[in-house]
Amino acid sequence: MSTPNPPPRSEPPAFAEIYDRYADDVHRYLRRRLGGDVADDLTADTFVAAFRSWSRFDPTAESARPWLFGIASNLAAKHRRSEVRGLRAYARSGVDPVASSWAEAADDRVSAQAMNRELATALSELSAGERDVLLLVAWAELSYAEVAAALHLPVGTVRSRLNRARRKVRTTLSPGTERVAVRPLTALEARGGNHG
């Protein structure tokens, strides 16, 4: 067989260049969702996974950025319960455990941002799919089409999830809306479900 003596092949794309171009953005997105330590691990996992599946990257795509954010979001899904717990802790106590990974004076933030506490509640109550879409649009600044490519969803689904997520957030933040106690994890979420 010819295989033990293959024809000359190219070496892989300069992966360090790809890492250097996108890693900070991906890391910050993960850090905002899950905090520093988890972000470090998941950023590394994202780029190693990207490297290993490089042949599946659409080379006609203008940028690898949406693809990388899609991998990062999928990896973050495994920490969904932790993410929701962090949001609820913020809502309950006024101290954001995720931000504590980069901010020094946690006490200063306790009294601040009442609106953020409500927002944390709203984000915690979104389905995982709704939260992914909302945060990819708001934090990663991806277009609908890019989110669709990143999450392998039809654009229409992206649009409807985003609309639903925004409606829920608005409802939670509306003046006069009575805040209810942060609900405990549902049985479904506790099993790692809640795929929106």
Binding site: D25, R31, R32, W102, L134, V169
Partner: peptide, 12 residues
Amino acid sequence: VREFRADAPLGA
């Protein structure tokens, strides 16, 4: 939402 945790620093 965009401003939520927007003080997160940039840099892996």
